[in-house]
């Protein structure tokens, strides 16, 4: 009974990211879209926190948002998705929790 947590706000100066991470169960997954993809910025605290998540927790990011922000040297565990992949992913989990 796993949950896909969807973040779209920046991890810098907004509490959603740091608040969401401790709530992830091993079977849960995280999907970063919009400014939440800034969490993948190399050498930052949010990127380090992503690396520290239990390895069973899957981390996804929307590729076009990553590319738009010129993010590189992404953490190895991140899987990039297009919109079709996004939709497919939301169907794969029992529920989606959007951090509005």
């Amino acid at each position: 009974m796993a949950t896909l947590h969807l973040l779209s706000h920046t991890p810098f100066g907004d509490s959603r990211f740091s608040s969401c991470l401790p709530l992830l169960a091993d079977s849960d997954a995280l999907l970063l879209t919009g400014d939440a993809t800034y969490a993948l910025t190399a050498g930052t605290q949010p990127a380090a926190e992503l690396e520290r998540l239990p390895e069973q927790v899957a981390v996804f990011a929307l590729d076009e948002d990553v590319q738009a922000r010129a993010l590189s040297a992404l953490p190895a565990r991140v899987q990039l998705l297009d919109y079709a992949g996004f939709v497919e992913l939301t169907c794969r989990y029992q529920r989606v929790n959007s951090w509005l």
């Binding site: 169960a25 849960d28 529920r95 929790n97």
Partner: peptide, 13 residues
Amino acid sequence: LSALINRYDHVIT
């Protein structure tokens, strides 16, 4: 909290 979230059909934050 993780367990709680996973008990419900829908979650709205």
